[in-house]
Structures are given as structure tokens and as C-alpha cells.
Write a protein that binds this DNA or RNA. Structure first.
Lengths: 234, 234
DNA sequence: GACGGTGTTAAACATCTGTTTTAAACTATT
DNA sequence: AATAGTTTAAAACAGATGTTTAACACCGTC
């Protein structure tokens, strides 16, 4: 096969219609059904394209998925910008609060595809595919590191301290729970309709819930450090 | 088709070999790959049985899954027992701490299949299947209600109060994170090998992290209630 | 207008997967 | 031992799904 094109590699796509439409449709379908659950036929159908086009433009399904993930990096980059802007903030607690609000409130946004991308990454977290390490290294780890840095500043601990990491995972667990377990949440708690107001209260709660420990930890260790009787217990 | 047996309905199975082997294999495969990802062939292969036997004994794949879920109810019932025993405990905070320890430490147990069942239910949470409401009503809701009751007692709030529910989901989010996002966790934090000691520290952390807010909330509202200047703000 | 490259289409292919069929093996009862 | 009911095995079936093929339309260039 000499003339095998498969322009997957050469990314100088003319930003034309079909390829972009396929990408957009793929984001939605992958976010809804996961990698295994999604079918190339549904993606093509939603994009109004022929079944063969996903293989023509991307080579195969996995490469399309990888491209979608790379697509999601842009969204994560925006997130990074938000995060960086927050770190300008003098008080890391305030920055933390704003960060949680930012993520939670964008999570249910289906119009802007930020929420879709985020759910995609979170879905990849629970059901890792072949693109596992790609996704993590390129999208999740920078977020993770920044969150760790922020929490480390609140705790007054180094970024690699076990407590810093444990707290970071406590926060990630709470946040991802509202993204990943949404159907269950709706079933167990029907009154929770995830309106914008309720989402704001959820974000407020997660921030309060987490900051209660983070601040008390900092206060406790600071007290121990300034205490005239060092190392009371041990 | 007159002699169609499909003994799925009549559950008076003689507790013999094949059916049980199939169930055990199905628990493992479903927990690993989810409902869609699991194939009847792999289940039969692991059970050392013929491909036709899952349909003979259970009717179809979905009914096998339902049976597996009902199987998991027994495990959840043991959990109930643990939980009920804990509620004997005078201090709800101690009961809460022990509960978190119990769940987290059993989560990684692959020998006793308690951990498998738990992961199965948690996986159903993130990727709901047709057995969705069955699973939730029969296994998750009782746990959810008990956890809410316990947290309500710590907070000194009714079980249906929004704060009680938000806190319950904060705890569930943290716990399920360690079950569902385990591969990601291992990748982001390679030193975390989930040894028994580390699992214990994780449980300790989640309890501390959560109780910091729960206790401070109770203290705050109690102070407000006994304050001579009622309703300072608002 | 011929031509090479690019994008698109309909059809077919190959594989996987849930399920069924048909017959054989086994078990317990008479 | 014969028989009826139950369980297992091998093969095949039917549908879905990722992928490929071969023909066709479009488009700018020589």
C-alpha cells in the first residue's frame, strides 16, 4: 500500500469542516459513554459524516481518542490560566476557594465544552484506557501539581509531604465525586437538581469542609512550633 | 419452545460447583472491567466452563449481573452489621472513625471478596447500567442512610438537612476516590503502594480531615445557640 | 481538457460477542 | 438396565463494530 495517507501525523490540517466536526462529536460521545462504550458510527453520525471518515482523518479510533485528549489539553490550559491568576492572590485560602468554585461551576457546563473535557478526564481516571499515561502526564498532572502547591502553601508544608498529598486527594475526591457520580447523586438526593445556585452552594461547602482541616492543621503546627515546651507528645 | 428451562427464576440451586464458580468469576470480571467491558467468554473461561453455561444458568448476561449484585448485598449486609455494631458506640465521632477505617482497609482486599463487591458497587456508581436502580436501592441506599444518620448525629442536625447531605457526599467522595481512582493514584503518587500500614494512614487522614469540619460545625452552632446575643448576623 | 491530489461515499470485510441449537454426558429414579 | 431430567460441550448464528476497499466527486495546476 503505497499511497496510504492517513493524515493523522501531519497535523497541518486546514481547520476545515469535517475533521473539526468529528472532533467535536467525539468529545461529546467519549465523555458520555467512555472509550469502550463509544462507537465510531455514533461519532460519525453526530458529525453528519460517513463511517469511513474517522479512519481516513485519524487512522483509527484510538488515535481519534488521543487527539480528543490533546484537544482537552487546551481546556486544561485555560484552567491553568485560571489557576495561575488565582495564585496571584495573596491569601492561598481565598485562591483555593475560588479554584473550587471555578471547577465545580464549570463542571455541568455542557454548552462551553470545558465541562465535557473535564468529565472526559475524570472518566479516564476511573476507567483508564490505552491513552492512560498520555492523559495523566499532559492534562491531569499539571493540575494535580498546582493543587498540591496551593494546598501546601495553606498547610505550610512542602509539596511532597504526605499530609499535603493526602489533603490534595481529599479535595480531588470530593470534586470528582460530583462529576463522576452525578447520576447516583441525582437518585439518592432527588431534590438536588444542580441548578447554578445549588452548584454554588456545593462549591462553598467543599471549600469550607476542606479549609476547616487545612487551617486547623496549620494553626496546630504553628502553635507547636512556637510553644516553649517543644514536642509535648511523641 | 416448550421445554425452555433457564433456571434463573427458580433459585433453589443446589449450591453446586459450576453456578457458583461462574458467579465468583463474574464478580471479579465485572469489578475489573465494568458491565460493558466484561465478556461472557472471559467469565466462562475463568470459571473453567463452557460459553453456553452462563445463558443456561442465568438466562442472559444482565441477569447474571443482577445476581452478582444481589450477591454483593450479602457483603453489604456484613457492612451493615459492622455499622450497626459501631452505632452502639457512645461517641458518634469514634464510630465514624472506625467506619472509615473499616471501609478503607477492606477496599483493597482481593482475597476476601468484600473489596471486590465494594468496588463493583462503586463502579456501578460511576458507570450506571440497566441494573442501576436495583443496585442503588438494595445496596447503596442503606449504607448512605446510615452514614447520613451517623454524620447527622455528629453535626447535631436532622438526617435530611442540606449540610448533613453535603458532608455525607464529601465523605463518600473521599472514600470512593481511593477505590475508583486507584490506578491514577498509583501513577500520580508512585510511593503510595497501598500497603496495610499506608491504608491505615489514609483512613486516619480521611477521618481527621472530615471530623475537623464536622466537629467545628457542631461547636459553632452550639455556641450560637447558647449565645446571649442570638442571631448576631442575618 | 487532462491530471494528480484530496475528500467523500457506499459497500463489504473481519472480528468480537451474546445467544441459541443440537447432541452428548451425567445423575437419580424406577 | 431403562428412562427421564439435568448439566455440559461444540458448533453455529446474528448482530454490532472497527476497519478497509474501490469508486466517485471536487479542485486547482499544467
Amino acid at each position: 500500500m503505497p499511497g496510504r495517507t492517513t493524515r493523522a501525523r501531519c497535523q497541518k490540517a486546514p481547520a476545515d469542516g469535517t475533521r473539526t466536526k468529528l472532533l467535536a462529536a467525539a468529545v461529546a460521545v467519549f465523555a458520555e459513554r467512555g472509550f469502550d462504550g463509544a462507537t465510531t458510527r455514533e461519532i460519525c453520525s453526530r458529525a453528519g459524516a460517513n463511517v469511513a471518515l474517522v479512519n481516513y482523518h485519524f487512522g483509527d479510533k484510538l488515535e481519534l481518542y488521543r487527539e480528543v485528549i490533546r484537544y482537552a489539553i487546551d481546556a486544561a490550559a485555560k484552567m491553568e490560566m485560571l489557576n495561575a491568576a488565582l495564585e496571584q492572590n495573596a491569601d492561598p485560602s481565598d485562591a483555593f476557594r475560588q479554584l473550587v468554585h471555578g471547577v465545580i461551576e464549570r463542571l455541568s457546563e455542557t454548552r462551553n465544552d470545558f465541562g465535557l473535557h473535564l468529565r472526559l478526564v475524570l472518566k479516564e481516571m476511573t476507567q483508564p484506557t490505552v491513552a492512560f499515561s498520555d492523559v495523566l502526564d499532559e492534562t491531569l498532572r499539571p493540575l494535580y501539581d498546582r493543587l498540591r502547591a496551593l494546598i501546601g502553601r495553606i498547610l505550610n508544608l512542602p509539596i511532597d509531604h504526605e499530609t499535603t498529598r493526602l489533603c490534595t486527594h481529599s479535595v480531588m475526591g470530593q470534586v470528582s465525586h460530583y462529576a463522576v457520580a452525578q447520576p447516583v447523586l441525582a437518585y439518592l438526593w432527588p431534590e438536588m437538581k444542580m441548578t447554578p445556585e445549588q452548584r454554588q452552594r456545593v462549591a462553598e461547602h467543599i471549600a469550607d469542609f476542606s479549609l476547616a482541616y487545612l487551617r486547623s492543621y496549620r494553626a496546630k503546627t504553628a502553635e507547636q512550633r512556637h510553644s516553649r515546651i517543644p514536642r509535648r507528645s511523641r
